[in-house]
Design a protein around this nucleic acid. Structure first.
Lengths: 215, 215
DNA sequence: GTCATATGAATGAACG
DNA sequence: CGTTCATTCATATGAC
């Protein structure tokens, strides 16, 4: 298939024979958020960034991320097709295809992806994996291992909170949030499993992680 | 074929008809936390409580919870066996410097089940589903509807007991778990711990759900 | 324990 | 040529 992607398998010496990667809930969360934010097909460099981010929550390789997005796209499309096929009935309805991918700001689709990079990531066209697109404001670099990388994710604006500052939230994107609250947490019929949760913001402070949920 | 049961009756607008329950990440989080806290075989009344709690994140029935724990126990044992069988003297991964790649879910795996009900839940023995043990301080009653409960849990996914001692298995390991819990629960902004994720608290406010992560 | 389904991994063809 | 998509297999896990 492609002489590119490495077979993964984590060549780490003496790792358990872990046959396949099983993404942690947090990882799925992040991946789904990215996907729903419109980046359904991240270029190579973004993939690396994503991988680094995911690594905070468990071992993962670039290939895993690559596969994930590939499968996600593929299955999203298939589901969409099948959904249209079976529900071909209400065809004339005022529900145009709206495509099957990137439900993000596509309009009708809820699911607020907090990874919104402002504009939709034109997945199609343009060869990725080589060029360096305007690195959407995905997330600050996750360099891990050395120190305080501090980054934030929020809707259409990076929040740069001070280190210790709890800055729990509702700082800047608050108003944006209200706009999104309309959608509760919803899973689209055509969408796969996974929770309908939203990564609200992520601030990294040293090697310490925490997960907060409020519903 | 799926015999009746009541898979996914949640008729809320926009829920695909799923033939089987697919736990949401948050639900898995909760379930794993409970399991790792030592309650590997909750009695019926506890199961109901757990179900109510899980319902906050998606439709779920008592049977699902019951099955989950049953499967979890079973597979935990199997993994244990297989791990012993292939046990190649791997013991202390020495907690890799975290940095580098493939942090591996290796032995370290912080775990820290926050559902620690103080004492280990002597899961084994006693046919559950009948008695009413001292309702561990699991979580505030989840009354759904709009009860704003606030609770804290931690997490630890990824089985992979083995090695170091985090043999997340039956009650026996509960003690060890506690030790670790202490250790990581204090994962405060200053503690040099890496990848210590845990659900910190959950406050419910209306039908709006959000996920916050800060690392 | 088996079975069914979801989904990670892998491959090859199509596309530009 | 490098990507992306469709297909298929492999494995994890809910259901029984």
């Amino acid at each position: 298939m492609d002489g590119g992607h490495s077979p993964d398998r984590h060549a780490a010496a003496g790792e358990t024979v872990r046959s396949r990667w099983t993404p942690k809930p947090e990882q799925i969360l992040i991946l789904e958020s990215i996907f729903n934010s419109g980046m359904v097909n991240p270029p190579k460099d973004e993939t690396v960034r994503i991988r680094k981010m995911l690594e905070r929550f468990g071992a993962v390789g670039d290939a895993n991320v690559f596969y994930w997005f590939q499968n996600r796209r593929s299955r999203s499309r298939r589901r969409q097709r099948q959904l249209q096929a079976t529900a071909a009935s209400s065809a004339s309805s005022g529900s145009p295809p709206t495509a099957g991918l990137a439900p993000g700001h596509a309009g009708s689709s809820p699911s607020l992806g907090l990874f919104a990079h402002g504009a939709a990531y034109s997945s199609s066209s343009s060869s990725s994996w080589s060029s360096s697109p305007p690195s959407v404001g995905l997330i600050g670099d996750v360099d891990r291992g050395d120190g305080d990388d501090l980054f934030a994710i929020s809707r259409q604006m990076g929040y740069k909170g001070g280190g210790g500052g709890s800055a729990s939230s509702l700082a800047a994107a608050a108003h944006e949030q209200q706009q999104q609250q309309q959608l509760y947490y919803s899973c689209q019929p055509g969408e796969p499993r996974h929770a309908c949760i939203h990564v609200h913001r992520c601030i990294c402070i040293r090697n310490f992680s925490q997960f907060s949920v409020w519903c």
